[in-house]
Write a protein that binds this DNA or RNA. Structure first.
Lengths: 68, 68
DNA sequence: TCAAAAAGACAAGTTTATTTTACATTTCAT
DNA sequence: ATGAAATGTAAAATAAACTTGTCTTTTTGA
């Protein structure tokens, strides 16, 4: 599973802390997701997509290995 | 958070068991998601969307209350 | 240029929610 | 009416999300 959080943030000039505040989680949670430490819950992922004004599918993408 | 799993299944004439098998979880997991007992992980949600050939956003939708 | 502020990374622990296992009920064709 | 297929429920186990705390790196503005 890969995500384009960092790119999206860059596009919109939003810091990790700011994004975290807007979706109601800790700053470190956003950071951990960004570096691929874990995948956010569907709820959080949808909120993030909503903040960016895009779709979840646009930010989070399955990889071949996710099916193994 | 609401989802249209049941409708999607009906459209494609797929049973809970069949969908479960295709995404690699138990039948009850699909059932529980369908009746809104809980929201699947992003990974599973993406797999389900993939099986239905649609987007996650099309199946799972945030509700106003999810932001509280 | 340098100190303070902001952002990024990491580890450990807690909590929460997902998922499974096992059992019960319903639906439906015959 | 009956057996098989499909669906529903609940408790318990497990896994993963998320937080807190700390440290490092980068940015910035005076």
């Amino acid at each position: 599973m890969k995500n384009s959080l960092k790119v999206q943030r860059a596009k919109q000039n939003i810091t990790q802390a700011e994004l975290a505040a807007r979706v109601g989680v800790s700053r470190q949670t956003i950071n951990s997701i960004e570096i691929g430490k874990y995948v956010p819950s569907t709820l959080l992922a949808l909120k993030i997509a909503s903040v960016f004004g895009t779709s979840l599918d646009d930010i989070f993408k399955l990889e071949e290995s996710d099916w193994h």
